[in-house]
Design a protein around this nucleic acid. Sequence first.
DNA 1: CATGCACCCTGTAGCCACTACAGGGTCAAG
DNA 2: CTTGACCCTGTAGTGGCTACAGGGTGCATG
Lengths: 135, 135
Amino acid sequence: MDPEVWSIGDLARATGTKVETIRFYEKSGLLPAPPRTARNYRAYSAEHLGRLSFIRRARDLGFSMEQVATLLALADRKDQSCEAVDIVARAHLAEIDRKLRDLRALRKELATMIANCDHGTIADCRIIEALAPRG
Amino acid sequence: MDPEVWSIGDLARATGTKVETIRFYEKSGLLPAPPRTARNYRAYSAEHLGRLSFIRRARDLGFSMEQVATLLALADRKDQSCEAVDIVARAHLAEIDRKLRDLRALRKELATMIANCDHGTIADCRIIEALAPRG
DNA sequence: CATGCACCCTGTAGCCACTACAGGGTCAAG
DNA sequence: CTTGACCCTGTAGTGGCTACAGGGTGCATG
């Protein structure tokens, strides 16, 4: 028996999101502003919970807030083709691949520097040397 | 024949850094404030150029500005052991490895989602489904 | 001699995606 | 009657820049 309304704290606990972050999503337009109680507390429905879970999952997968907004808008147009969704996802995948390539190249360079270090004085340090311009 | 003094624009061109970024490094304490000309223009020496190159190279390798500051401070103590340098570099390597693991896991998940998408309507979209809570 | 242009200066605000905190309120239990 | 757990708004901070407003200097060209 889920409650029919949720406080912001309930949503936070249910989704592993900080309260401030939820308010931030609302201000950013990702999460619709819920109705308020007599005490001016936000009163969320199950729909809000679902939407916030969606946002969190997409963010965890590295989609930008802008991409999440796009995906959310698309998710609501149930009868349309999901090609646009595919495009967003593939663009994100390409971006991840680019980051992976960069990070691997960087790791290699750094590992080489570290491997060359023979723990003498700074004056002979291969790491510092590799960073300094021309030896 | 290098000039003996360099304008901020010269340094920018020589290191591939934007002028604003150089000023930003100065304000952040990474690059020492150079003497000024009569017109209040920054007048850099070859030493500044070397230091900026070091900063850029370290930043390109993904070291944080704080780590760069540490490395710069260490680089000046030529007679000391380079153990501290090694520690900073290894910490950074570990961080890169963590990011690589995260990114690879994420890539896998995203690729699976995309592979499952059979380009029907949004209602049947596996990508949206994977993001939405409980199908 | 005027004009345009490339450069330089300072200071502030913007980017992303939060996070933290100040300063205030309501409510229930001990 | 005080303590603590919540909630509210609004602002400022993070990292690492980037951009722009609003001003100045100096050189070449018409």
